[in-house]
Protein backbone atom coordinates (compact mmCIF):
# COMPACT_ATOMS: atom_id res chain seq x y z
CA UNK A 1 0.00 0.00 0.00
CA UNK A 2 1.17 3.50 -0.77
CA UNK A 3 0.72 5.81 2.14
CA UNK A 4 0.76 9.52 1.53
CA UNK A 5 0.45 12.36 3.95
CA UNK A 6 -0.04 15.95 2.99
CA UNK A 7 0.05 18.94 5.29
CA UNK A 8 -0.41 16.75 8.35
CA UNK A 9 -0.01 18.87 11.48
CA UNK A 10 -1.12 18.63 15.08
CA UNK A 11 -1.69 21.38 17.60
CA UNK A 12 -2.69 20.13 21.03
CA UNK A 13 -5.24 21.82 23.22
CA UNK A 14 -3.21 24.50 24.97
CA UNK A 15 -1.43 25.48 21.77
CA UNK A 16 1.55 23.11 21.80
CA UNK A 17 2.51 22.42 18.20
CA UNK A 18 3.43 18.76 18.38
CA UNK A 19 3.72 18.40 14.63
CA UNK A 20 4.28 21.06 11.97
CA UNK A 21 2.74 20.53 8.52
CA UNK A 22 4.40 17.41 7.14
CA UNK A 23 4.30 15.70 3.75
CA UNK A 24 5.45 12.15 3.37
CA UNK A 25 5.01 9.30 0.90
CA UNK A 26 5.78 5.70 1.69
CA UNK A 27 6.01 3.14 -1.10
CA UNK A 28 4.28 -0.26 -1.00
CA UNK A 29 6.25 -2.74 1.08
CA UNK A 30 8.63 -0.08 2.32
CA UNK A 31 9.73 0.01 5.93
CA UNK A 32 10.10 3.56 7.13
CA UNK A 33 11.46 4.54 10.49
CA UNK A 34 10.55 7.75 12.27
CA UNK A 35 13.62 8.54 14.33
CA UNK A 36 14.05 11.36 16.78
CA UNK A 37 14.43 12.38 20.40
CA UNK A 38 11.41 12.32 22.69
CA UNK A 39 8.95 15.08 22.01
CA UNK A 40 9.94 15.45 18.35
CA UNK A 41 6.45 14.54 17.14
CA UNK A 42 7.23 11.07 15.78
CA UNK A 43 4.62 9.28 17.91
CA UNK A 44 2.05 11.97 17.14
CA UNK A 45 2.63 11.43 13.43
CA UNK A 46 2.24 7.67 13.85
CA UNK A 47 -0.96 8.09 15.86
CA UNK A 48 -2.39 10.39 13.20
CA UNK A 49 -1.70 7.75 10.54
CA UNK A 50 -3.38 5.17 12.80
CA UNK A 51 -6.38 7.42 13.36
CA UNK A 52 -5.84 7.56 17.11
CA UNK A 53 -5.21 11.29 16.90
CA UNK A 54 -7.07 13.82 14.74
CA UNK A 55 -4.75 16.09 12.70
CA UNK A 56 -5.37 19.83 12.40
CA UNK A 57 -7.82 20.81 9.64
CA UNK A 58 -6.34 20.78 6.14
CA UNK A 59 -4.43 17.55 6.60
CA UNK A 60 -4.91 14.63 4.27
CA UNK A 61 -4.02 11.01 4.97
CA UNK A 62 -4.31 8.75 1.94
CA UNK A 63 -4.11 4.96 1.86
CA UNK A 64 -3.56 3.93 -1.78
CA UNK A 65 -5.20 7.18 -2.86
CA UNK A 66 -8.25 6.63 -0.62
CA UNK A 67 -8.77 9.47 1.81
CA UNK A 68 -8.97 8.09 5.34
CA UNK A 69 -8.46 11.33 7.29
CA UNK A 70 -11.98 11.25 8.72
CA UNK A 71 -12.19 7.48 9.08
CA UNK A 72 -12.18 6.27 12.70
CA UNK A 73 -9.27 4.03 13.67
CA UNK A 74 -11.38 0.87 13.81
CA UNK A 75 -12.30 1.19 10.12
CA UNK A 76 -8.83 2.01 8.74
CA UNK A 77 -7.59 -1.59 8.62
CA UNK A 78 -4.22 -0.84 10.09
CA UNK A 79 -2.14 -2.96 12.42
CA UNK A 80 -0.40 -1.42 15.36
CA UNK A 81 2.18 -2.58 17.88
CA UNK A 82 2.06 -0.41 20.98
CA UNK A 83 4.98 0.57 23.13
CA UNK A 84 3.36 -1.20 26.11
CA UNK A 85 1.99 -3.86 23.69
CA UNK A 86 -1.59 -3.30 24.98
CA UNK A 87 -2.22 -7.04 25.06
CA UNK A 88 -5.67 -7.78 26.44
CA UNK A 89 -5.06 -9.36 29.87
CA UNK A 90 -8.52 -10.94 29.82
CA UNK A 91 -7.71 -13.03 26.73
CA UNK A 92 -5.28 -15.84 25.94
CA UNK A 93 -2.48 -15.48 23.43
CA UNK A 94 -4.66 -17.09 20.73
CA UNK A 95 -7.64 -14.91 21.53
CA UNK A 96 -5.45 -11.81 21.37
CA UNK A 97 -4.08 -12.80 17.96
CA UNK A 98 -7.52 -13.74 16.67
CA UNK A 99 -9.27 -10.62 17.93
CA UNK A 100 -8.82 -8.53 14.80
CA UNK A 101 -10.02 -11.42 12.63
CA UNK A 102 -13.07 -11.80 14.85
CA UNK A 103 -13.78 -8.10 14.36
CA UNK A 104 -13.72 -8.65 10.59
CA UNK A 105 -16.51 -11.19 11.09
CA UNK A 106 -14.52 -14.14 9.76
CA UNK A 107 -15.75 -17.68 10.26
CA UNK A 108 -14.36 -19.57 13.21
CA UNK A 109 -12.42 -22.02 11.03
CA UNK A 110 -10.82 -19.21 9.02
CA UNK A 111 -9.82 -17.42 12.19
CA UNK A 112 -8.27 -20.59 13.59
CA UNK A 113 -6.34 -21.24 10.39
CA UNK A 114 -4.96 -17.72 10.19
CA UNK A 115 -4.09 -17.66 13.91
CA UNK A 116 -2.19 -20.94 13.46
CA UNK A 117 -0.34 -19.49 10.50
CA UNK A 118 0.66 -16.29 12.26
CA UNK A 119 1.52 -18.12 15.47
CA UNK A 120 3.89 -20.33 13.52
CA UNK A 121 5.39 -17.39 11.66
CA UNK A 122 6.14 -15.61 14.92
CA UNK A 123 7.27 -18.83 16.62
CA UNK A 124 4.61 -18.59 19.27
CA UNK A 125 3.20 -22.14 19.11
CA UNK A 126 4.45 -23.19 22.57
CA UNK A 127 2.67 -20.24 24.19
CA UNK A 128 -0.52 -20.07 22.13
CA UNK A 129 -2.88 -21.21 24.87
CA UNK A 130 -1.19 -19.29 27.68
CA UNK A 131 -2.52 -16.20 29.40
CA UNK A 132 -0.72 -13.11 28.13
CA UNK A 133 0.16 -12.26 31.72
CA UNK A 134 2.31 -15.42 31.85
CA UNK A 135 4.67 -14.33 29.06
CA UNK A 136 8.13 -12.79 29.11
CA UNK A 137 8.78 -9.38 27.60
CA UNK A 138 10.12 -10.77 24.34
CA UNK A 139 7.19 -13.16 23.98
CA UNK A 140 4.72 -10.35 24.61
CA UNK A 141 6.39 -8.31 21.92
CA UNK A 142 5.95 -11.14 19.42
CA UNK A 143 2.31 -11.63 20.42
CA UNK A 144 1.71 -7.92 19.88
CA UNK A 145 3.29 -8.20 16.44
CA UNK A 146 1.35 -11.36 15.57
CA UNK A 147 -1.89 -9.74 16.70
CA UNK A 148 -1.22 -6.68 14.57
CA UNK A 149 -0.44 -8.57 11.35
CA UNK A 150 -3.02 -11.37 11.69
CA UNK A 151 -5.87 -9.38 10.09
CA UNK A 152 -3.60 -8.53 7.10
CA UNK A 153 -3.60 -4.78 7.72
CA UNK A 154 -2.89 -2.30 4.96
CA UNK A 155 -0.07 -0.78 6.94
CA UNK A 156 1.75 -1.88 10.05
CA UNK A 157 2.55 0.79 12.62
CA UNK A 158 5.04 0.14 15.40
CA UNK A 159 5.45 2.55 18.30
CA UNK A 160 8.81 1.95 20.00
CA UNK A 161 8.18 -1.80 19.99
CA UNK A 162 11.52 -2.66 21.59
CA UNK A 163 11.77 0.00 24.26
CA UNK A 164 9.97 -2.04 26.93
CA UNK A 165 12.66 -4.72 26.77
CA UNK A 166 15.94 -4.82 28.63
CA UNK A 167 19.11 -3.94 26.73
CA UNK A 168 20.43 -7.46 26.10
CA UNK A 169 17.13 -8.71 24.69
CA UNK A 170 16.61 -5.57 22.66
CA UNK A 171 19.62 -6.18 20.43
CA UNK A 172 18.62 -9.76 19.70
CA UNK A 173 14.96 -8.95 19.05
CA UNK A 174 15.90 -6.02 16.85
CA UNK A 175 17.39 -8.34 14.24
CA UNK A 176 14.54 -10.82 14.65
CA UNK A 177 12.02 -8.04 14.10
CA UNK A 178 13.89 -6.80 11.03
CA UNK A 179 13.73 -10.31 9.51
CA UNK A 180 10.05 -10.78 10.40
CA UNK A 181 9.02 -7.42 8.96
CA UNK A 182 10.83 -8.23 5.69
CA UNK A 183 9.10 -11.60 5.55
CA UNK A 184 5.67 -9.96 5.87
CA UNK A 185 6.36 -7.74 2.86
CA UNK A 186 4.05 -5.14 4.33
CA UNK A 187 4.27 -1.35 4.36
CA UNK A 188 5.45 -0.51 7.85
CA UNK A 189 6.22 2.56 9.89
CA UNK A 190 8.41 2.18 12.87
CA UNK A 191 8.87 4.84 15.55
CA UNK A 192 12.04 4.80 17.60
CA UNK A 193 14.46 7.06 19.41
CA UNK A 194 17.31 4.56 18.91
CA UNK A 195 19.35 5.10 15.73
CA UNK A 196 20.71 1.52 15.75
CA UNK A 197 17.14 0.21 15.69
CA UNK A 198 16.17 2.54 12.88
CA UNK A 199 19.26 1.63 10.83
CA UNK A 200 18.84 -2.10 11.37
CA UNK A 201 15.18 -2.30 10.51
CA UNK A 202 14.25 0.47 8.09
CA UNK A 203 14.64 0.92 4.32
CA UNK A 204 14.40 4.65 4.83
CA UNK A 205 14.69 6.73 7.95
CA UNK A 206 12.93 10.03 8.61
CA UNK A 207 14.86 11.93 11.26
CA UNK A 208 12.48 14.20 13.14
CA UNK A 209 13.11 17.19 15.31
CA UNK A 210 10.78 19.72 16.96
CA UNK A 211 7.71 18.59 15.03
CA UNK A 212 9.38 18.44 11.63
CA UNK A 213 11.14 15.92 9.42
CA UNK A 214 14.76 17.12 9.39
CA UNK A 215 15.96 14.69 6.73
CA UNK A 216 14.67 11.56 5.10
CA UNK A 217 16.73 8.94 3.30
CA UNK A 218 18.35 5.55 3.44
CA UNK A 219 20.47 4.80 6.52
CA UNK A 220 23.62 5.15 4.38
CA UNK A 221 22.59 8.56 3.05
CA UNK A 222 21.79 9.87 6.50
CA UNK A 223 25.11 8.62 7.81
CA UNK A 224 27.29 9.73 4.96
CA UNK A 225 25.52 12.84 3.80
CA UNK A 226 23.67 14.42 6.66
CA UNK A 227 22.19 17.75 5.65
CA UNK A 228 22.24 19.30 9.10
CA UNK A 229 24.31 19.22 12.24
CA UNK A 230 21.33 17.77 14.09
CA UNK A 231 21.11 14.77 11.80
CA UNK A 232 24.89 14.32 11.91
CA UNK A 233 24.83 14.31 15.68
CA UNK A 234 21.71 12.15 16.05
CA UNK A 235 22.74 9.59 13.39
CA UNK A 236 26.23 8.31 14.09
CA UNK A 237 26.95 10.67 16.97
CA UNK A 238 29.07 13.25 15.08
CA UNK A 239 30.91 15.70 17.35
CA UNK A 240 31.17 19.41 16.55
CA UNK A 241 34.66 20.84 16.06
CA UNK A 242 34.27 24.45 17.10
CA UNK A 243 37.07 26.46 15.56
CA UNK A 244 37.92 29.19 13.08
CA UNK A 245 37.76 28.40 9.35
CA UNK A 246 40.23 30.26 7.16
CA UNK A 247 40.50 29.27 3.51
CA UNK A 248 40.65 25.50 3.54
CA UNK A 249 41.83 25.14 7.13
CA UNK A 250 40.04 24.68 10.42
CA UNK A 251 41.97 26.17 13.34
CA UNK A 252 41.42 24.36 16.62
CA UNK A 253 43.11 24.77 20.04
CA UNK A 254 45.16 21.62 19.31
CA UNK A 255 46.24 22.59 15.80
CA UNK A 256 44.87 23.11 12.28
CA UNK A 257 43.04 20.60 10.05
CA UNK A 258 42.77 20.69 6.30
CA UNK A 259 39.21 20.84 4.99
CA UNK A 260 37.58 20.01 1.69
CA UNK A 261 37.02 23.21 -0.29
CA UNK A 262 33.83 25.19 0.26
CA UNK A 263 33.58 24.90 4.02
CA UNK A 264 33.70 28.62 4.74
CA UNK A 265 30.95 29.73 7.15
CA UNK A 266 29.96 26.19 7.91
CA UNK A 267 30.12 24.09 11.03
CA UNK A 268 32.48 21.12 11.02
CA UNK A 269 31.70 17.71 12.56
CA UNK A 270 33.63 14.52 12.99
CA UNK A 271 32.72 10.99 14.11
CA UNK A 272 34.63 9.07 16.77
CA UNK A 273 35.66 6.33 14.33
CA UNK A 274 37.30 8.89 12.04
CA UNK A 275 39.73 10.30 14.61
CA UNK A 276 43.10 8.51 14.29
CA UNK A 277 45.98 8.32 16.72
CA UNK A 278 48.83 9.41 14.50
CA UNK A 279 52.28 10.49 15.79
CA UNK A 280 52.58 12.70 12.70
CA UNK A 281 49.07 14.11 13.05
CA UNK A 282 48.41 17.85 13.07
CA UNK A 283 46.35 17.92 16.31
CA UNK A 284 47.75 17.74 19.85
CA UNK A 285 45.52 16.23 22.56
CA UNK A 286 45.65 14.80 26.06
CA UNK A 287 44.11 11.45 26.95
CA UNK A 288 41.59 11.92 29.77
CA UNK A 289 40.05 8.46 30.02
CA UNK A 290 40.41 5.08 28.34
CA UNK A 291 37.65 2.48 28.19
CA UNK A 292 38.39 -1.00 26.93
CA UNK A 293 35.48 -2.30 24.88
CA UNK A 294 36.84 -5.66 23.69
CA UNK A 295 37.18 -5.02 19.96
CA UNK A 296 38.50 -1.51 20.51
CA UNK A 297 39.26 1.22 23.02
CA UNK A 298 37.28 4.37 23.52
CA UNK A 299 39.41 7.38 24.32
CA UNK A 300 38.26 10.67 25.79
CA UNK A 301 40.52 13.42 24.48
CA UNK A 302 40.89 17.00 25.61
CA UNK A 303 42.85 19.92 24.25
CA UNK A 304 42.32 19.20 20.56
CA UNK A 305 38.95 20.93 20.34
CA UNK A 306 37.08 23.15 22.82
CA UNK A 307 34.85 20.17 23.73
CA UNK A 308 35.94 16.74 24.85
CA UNK A 309 36.37 14.45 21.81
CA UNK A 310 35.76 10.73 21.73
CA UNK A 311 37.92 8.54 19.52
CA UNK A 312 37.71 4.81 18.79
CA UNK A 313 41.08 3.13 18.67
CA UNK A 314 41.42 -0.41 17.32
CA UNK A 315 44.99 -1.29 18.33
CA UNK A 316 46.16 -3.95 20.77
CA UNK A 317 47.26 -1.34 23.25
CA UNK A 318 46.15 2.15 24.08
CA UNK A 319 47.76 5.22 25.58
CA UNK A 320 47.23 5.82 29.30
CA UNK A 321 45.22 8.63 30.79
CA UNK A 322 47.36 11.74 31.07
CA UNK A 323 49.50 10.93 28.05
CA UNK A 324 49.93 13.47 25.28
CA UNK A 325 48.98 12.15 21.82
CA UNK A 326 48.68 13.48 18.31
CA UNK A 327 45.64 13.01 16.10
CA UNK A 328 44.83 13.15 12.43
CA UNK A 329 41.47 13.33 10.67
CA UNK A 330 41.15 12.77 6.92
CA UNK A 331 39.63 15.80 5.10
CA UNK A 332 36.92 13.51 3.63
CA UNK A 333 35.86 12.47 7.13
CA UNK A 334 35.12 16.04 8.16
CA UNK A 335 31.47 16.90 7.66
CA UNK A 336 30.94 20.55 6.78
CA UNK A 337 27.33 21.44 7.47
CA UNK A 338 25.26 24.61 7.64
CA UNK A 339 25.77 26.30 11.01
CA UNK A 340 22.97 25.73 13.55
CA UNK A 341 21.55 28.44 15.75
CA UNK A 342 21.61 26.21 18.78
CA UNK A 343 24.18 23.69 19.88
Amino acid sequence: MTLSLSRVAKTFAGGTKALLPTDLTIAPGEILSLLGPSGCGKTTLLRIIAGLEQPDPGARVLFDGEEVTALPVERRRIGMVFQSYALFPNMSVRANIGYGLKMQGLARADIDARVDEVTALCQLQPYASRAVTALSGGQRQRVALARAIAPRPRVLLLDEPLSALDAALRGQLRDELALLLRSFGITAIFVTHDQDEAMAIADRVAVMRAGQVAQIGTPETLYRNPTSGFVARFVGGAMPLRGRVTGDHLHLPGGALRLRPGAAGQQVFVRAEDIRLDPEGPLAARVEAVTFLGTHYRLALSGAAPDLLTALHAGHSAPRPGEAVRLSIAPDALLSLPAEDHA
Binding site: A50, G51, L52, P72, V73, E74, R75, R76, R77, I78, G79, M80, F82, Y85, A86, L87, F88, Y99, G100, M103, Q104, R147, A148, P151, L157
Partner: peptide, 8 residues
Protein backbone atom coordinates in the same frame (compact mmCIF):
# COMPACT_ATOMS: atom_id res chain seq x y z
CA UNK B 1 -6.63 1.82 21.30
CA UNK B 2 -5.24 -1.67 20.74
CA UNK B 3 -8.73 -3.02 20.19
CA UNK B 4 -9.63 -0.06 17.96
CA UNK B 5 -6.64 -0.65 15.66
CA UNK B 6 -7.90 -4.23 15.30
CA UNK B 7 -11.28 -2.99 14.14
CA UNK B 8 -13.39 -2.89 17.31
Amino acid sequence: EGAATLGA
